[in-house]
Design a protein around this nucleic acid. Sequence first.
RNA 1: GGUCCGUUCGUCUAGGGGUUAGGACACCAGAUUUUCAUUCUGGUAACACGGGUUCGAUUCCCGUACGGACUACCA
Length: 517
Amino acid sequence: MKFVPLGSALCMNVRVRFAPSPTGALHIGGVRTALYNFLLARQTGGTMILRIEDTDQNRYVPGAEEYILQSLAWAGIKIDEGVGPGGPHAPYRQSERKAIYQKHARELVDLGHAYYAFDTEADLEAMRQRTPNAQYDSTTRLQMKNSLSLPKEEVQKLLTSEPYVIRLKIPSNEEIHLNDLIRGEVKVHSSQLDDKVLMKSDGMPTYHLANVVDDFLMQISHVIRGEEWLPSAPHHVLLYRFFGWSNVMPRFAHLPLLLKPDGNGKLSKRDADRMGFPIFPLTWTDPRTGETSKGFRESGYLPEAMINFLALLGWNPGTTQEIFSLNELIQSFSLERVGKAGAKFDIQKAQWFNQQYLRALSPEILSGYLLDSLKKEGFACTPDRALKIVAALKDRVTYPQDFWEQGRLFFAAPDAFDSSAVGKKWTSDAVKVLHEYEQKVKSAPALSANDAKLMLEEICAAMGIKPGQVLAALRISLTGGMSGPDLMQTIEILGGMETALRIQTALKQLAVPTSNV
RNA sequence: GGUCCGUUCGUCUAGGGGUUAGGACACCAGAUUUUCAUUCUGGUAACACGGGUUCGAUUCCCGUACGGACUACCA
């Protein structure tokens, strides 16, 4: 019962759609929904369609559509048909398909499955006040102002003089079945359903009408969308039936939600802000408030890592494999293995994926990241030296920008010394060695890591001091602190001159300890 | 409130009538390392609860609890 077979779906012409609303930036959960659609399309040789559901003019946000397109492109989710590439079912923007919905809505009225309603907002409010939990349905519709309750002549008159909506006439007493690919059999009694508005008074359709009409006309085979649509899915099933399209109704798959990392509930921008991680794929500036939200891309997340992470948030391959290229995902993905429960968004796991993917990149690409940062910061660096720095830093980074964050020590001497480290490690023995070492290193501008090591050992041996006791002090004088890449490697990259210079500075600035010998 | 959906380590999850309940992230410890990081090894840690069904339930059924979604002329 939990594995609902796709049946002939694999053989049929798979056409899936991602249908966002341009009301703002694309939420990361939307990216996952798009991804699952895309994976199924690619796996079956089907078609991935992008449709823009912009039927609410009040919520339209300029730039949102372009943002969605760019986000999907960044994520590597290619659109085969729809807004962007175009296609045989154009237009793919619902605001441009008004007439189509009008026609279908009227058809439903003629069939007796929908009706005109003239209730004002106040009328609706009054109805809700009258009875608790009241909804516009078979028990209340006759008390309202609509073409079912009013005389014909009056309806005709109102139709020309008053604003009106078209509502779906829900049958009063029947069980509606829905076979969800993820949830299995879902049953809802029609008495629980309300007479949803199909056409708004501004002449635009609601989601319910538009999405059913378009999915039919665009020959969508699978509707893969968020769980928040499950409660209205029975309405959609009814619409397919009333239009006479039941035999070509798409298969439904309602995806579990992405939850906030702590507590419960849908992952929101607020949660992300509060916990300090992005929620949008790309940086987004809200045109109304002017508020800017940093995207995953700008925060240093690689699209391949995000995709891998997102794919595993709700889906699993049934094996222990964790790292998946896009092609591997396309191979392995299946709706059967999508879980039912919501998944908490674990940014730490995303970071781990990013680290894995970052390390797997070629030295050339990695050094490119460093070079880019250096350019911005106004530092010059040869490609060769960048390569060396990147090699020294490779196992220490999570994001591309870490190469600069951690590599800046190669370009700027420390401006302060970690006082607790100094207190513990800045010994008079170390200072003695450092004086000698500085002299020696100064005359060897191009020394190798190995040379640097030999020189140090030589001095230490001559003075009868263990090198281990000096290394920390040496590190402090070069980097200001106690952590960093391999010390000798650091010296090699810094060069003898710079190394000597930094030791001199440290020797000058840090008091020679008298107490600890 | 009503309807619908859900519930295995802290997190993502595998599993499934009899298992030492497996993996990954995170965390902790040890080893390696001149530091930190990496790497390696090991460890802590889970079947929400109550009834059935059954020789046996974490697994099947029913309840309860908890959580979530929906409940607009928004999508």
